[in-house]
């Protein structure tokens, strides 16, 4: 399973184009078949080269439609696999973050602040969200860095990034 090599948007566009082709080709195939049947009724034999060519075209169109349908179904199932993979990754990330917080014995307030730090909010923004003074947030942040053994915001965040990268390597080896 190639995760994320193809952006989801590209896949979706490809699926839509495939569906459009199936629609056009499918309707044309039905017309060709209808025409062949009508001609055959009028003419009565298949050795007529015009009729023969038309029949071949109809068969080609129908096979094309079937092939495209299989393609589209495969694409749809790859897309849903990718979504499942992403969901699992999201879930795992949340679980890992929670485990780290537990390990460091963060208080509830510290957990909230730590999560906002991870999401990229600065101290002033966190203070505004939590309705506290920015001095309080600074103190809580210092306590978080001390408990997690990191010397500041950048290193604190890198602890989780490291975990993500390590996780990916494990995934890649497993695949």
């Amino acid at each position: 399973m190639k995760l994320g090599l193809w952006p989801a948007k590209t896949k979706e566009r490809r699926a839509t184009v495939l569906a459009g082709l199936i629609l056009l080709q499918g309707v044309s195939a039905l017309f060709f078949i209808g025409d062949v049947i009508l001609d055959f009724r009028e003419d009565g034999h298949l050795d007529n080269p015009h009729l023969l060519l038309e029949s071949i075209a109809a068969v080609a169109l129908v096979s094309g439609v079937i092939f495209l349908m299989i393609e589209l179904r495969g694409l749809m199932s790859r897309m849903s696999d990718m979504q499942t993979g992403l969901d699992i990754a999201h879930g795992h990330m949340a679980a890992i973050v929670g485990e780290f917080f537990d390990e460091w014995n963060l208080t509830q307030a510290e957990r909230d602040v730590a999560l906002m730090i991870l999401k990229g909010l600065d101290n002033d923004a966190i203070a505004r969200v939590r309705n506290t003074a920015s001095g309080t947030v600074r103190a809580q942040a210092t306590s978080i860095y001390a408990k997690s053994n990191s010397d500041g915001r950048a290193q604190f965040i890198s602890l989780f990034v490291e975990e993500l990268i390590a996780g990916n390597e494990r995934l890649a080896q497993g695949a």
Binding site: E12, A15, T16, L18, A19, G20, I22, L23, M69, L72, M76, M79, S80, Q83, A94, A95, V97, G98, E99, F101, D102, Q108, R111, D112, L115
Partner: peptide, 28 residues
């Protein structure tokens, strides 16, 4: 753990499921 998950997603964890493929939609 639970609090992390709740605050982690901004919109209260509504989930999206891809249900209708483009062919179904185009035909509809």
């Amino acid at each position: 753990m639970i609090t992390v998950e709740q605050t982690a997603s901004g919109r209260a964890s509504a989930r999206e499921v891809v249900v209708w493929d483009p062919l179904v939609r185009l035909i509809h």
